[in-house]
Amino acid sequence: MVSPAEDVKLRVVADRSKCMGAGMCALNAPEVFDQDEQEGLVVVLEPEPSAEHRYAVRDAVNLCPASALRFEKDEA
């Protein structure tokens, strides 16, 4: 996985087809993730989280039970 400490643009990607709505992401990184009211599935609020939120995002990625979240280097 990409290290959150790296000085590059990082992008968070969520796969809603895998999400089971357990809310570990919204609980552990509320600035970056939310859940929509209709289906209860993950919504990424900040696709390019600022440095201060990267560790929380890494925790959310690791804690997601359904492996629905990924951290990617932004190639653009």
């Binding site: 709505g21 809310g23 919204a26 509320p30 859940q35 009211e37 209709q38």
Partner: peptide, 16 residues
């Protein structure tokens, strides 16, 4: 499983 579980996920989201 997912079809049935997703009928309930919105009831247990963090906000709610």
């Amino acid at each position: 499983h997912a079809r049935l579980r997703r009928m309930l996920t919105s009831d247990f989201i963090i906000k709610r």
